[in-house]
Simulated assay, not measured.
Amino acid sequence: MHRSRSASGPRVSARQERDFRALMDLAHGFMASQVLFAGCALRVFDAAALGPVDAAALARSSGLSPRGTRLLLDACAGLGLLQRCRGAGPGGPAYTNSPLASTFLVAGSPLSQRSLLLYLAGTTYLCWGHLADGVREGRSQYARAVGVDADDPFTAIYRSEAERLLFMQGLQETWSLCGERILAAFDLSPFRVICDLGGGSGALARMAARLYPGSEVIVFETPDVVAAARTHFPPPADEDGAEPRVRFLSGGCGVGIWAQSPRPGLSDRRDLLLRRVRGALRPGGAVLLVESVLSPGGAGPTRTLLLSLTMLLQAQGRERTEAEYRALTARAGFSRLRLRRPRGPYHAMMAARGGGARARIDIGGGEVTSQTGSGTGSEVGTQD
């Protein structure tokens, strides 16, 4: 015997209604991100920075569909990226940037994240389209997403000059927001040399040079990246006209180190890299690791869990807990790792070289240990 239902269907509780709305927000989240990405790609926010803009005028000046432009502008306003002006002219309603867009989406803003968003809209978004395949196979999805299959993720990231420059600019924008807090999490002034391994355009290194003028600051990168940094990312002058003292050195970075063992596993590569770094440090040296760290047990935060999936899809890696980073650095011979949590998306961790009388040093009442970074940037400090 079947239970009868009303003609209108099963009853839906208030909780189920809330859950359904939450489900739809998750299901349609990619649409909101695409509105953001399209606004950046079509320079909507740059146009609105010059004054109120309407769909008809923007369509004429940019060669866009008037109808499509109006739909995009309305969607941007609905998401809080644009603000609709009162009244409407012959071209329809006009729009101005919201404070969020003025700060983060306008090219030329000191805190602009436009290049980072365009990188996410391209390579990262394509890889995420193959998330189920990545989970099924446990490997990078570059081959499906962009047609590049390589053990080294940077072969795909730097697959063209345009892609390399966009990635470098995106990292530079990230450091404009949180780089100084990361570098100030530990006092690096006692270190005579600070070396940023895989330092890209040198943005983080230049911040280090300003914060610690008594240290020699070096960026170690592949020859192609060093050439691109010198050509496309000239250092800005300080207020007194002097450029921060940063020296670029070119070499194999992690790629050359990884090549020493035939097609090693990812854990082998990390351990080998850290051991090589430790071997290059003098007693008292340190390595700074800059990462988004998972909470104990790996249950959160959500942003780090999503970033961990990105690492799977683009670098065949993952994010880790503090305990896992302690084990990772200990295997390479580093002393006790310390973690600090400056405001922002990344944490700073330091581990000492170990194996010498000066492997641990006290600075400002706190024990500073050597520092290591794998994905977002790493500084290696040596102390005379």
Rank of each mutant, 00 (worst) to 15 (best):
E379W: 07
C76N: 07
V287A: 15
P301A: 05
T174R: 05
P234T: 05
A94K: 05
P110R: 14
E367F: 01
P52D: 08
R210H: 11
A47M: 13
A56E: 12
A55G: 13
E291F: 05
R263Y: 00
L111R: 14
T174Y: 09
F334P: 02
T304K: 01
R263L: 06
S102V: 14
L211C: 03
A280Q: 08
L64Y: 06
P236K: 14
F220S: 10
R84Y: 01
A359W: 04
G147S: 15
R11S: 13
A352V: 05
G147T: 06
E243P: 00
F154E: 00
R144E: 09
H28L: 13
L337M: 04
L273S: 11
P213R: 14
D224M: 02
R263P: 00
A351K: 00
D240S: 08
Q260Y: 07
T174D: 05
Q169C: 11
I257D: 09
H347F: 06
E367R: 10
G51R: 09
Y325H: 15
A156G: 09
A359Q: 09
E161T: 06
G214D: 04
S112Q: 11
Y346M: 05
G356Q: 02
S201G: 02
R341P: 00
P235T: 09
S61H: 07
A209R: 02
Q16I: 08
G29F: 12
A7Y: 02
V135N: 04
G179T: 09
M31Q: 12
D46M: 03
G80N: 04
S8R: 15
D149F: 12
R303E: 10
G92D: 07
S62M: 14
L281V: 08
L294D: 08
M349P: 11
A38Q: 10
S112P: 13
L281T: 08
L294Q: 08
V226E: 00
R86N: 06
A280V: 02
S140L: 09
A315V: 13
T302W: 15
A55M: 07
Q34A: 14
T123R: 00
R86S: 10
G122M: 05
A77S: 12
F334I: 00
L211A: 07
R159Q: 09
Q16S: 15
L281C: 11
G214W: 03
M168Q: 15
R230D: 01
V380Y: 06
T376G: 04
L177H: 15
A132G: 11
G39S: 04
A48Y: 01
L312E: 10
L188G: 00
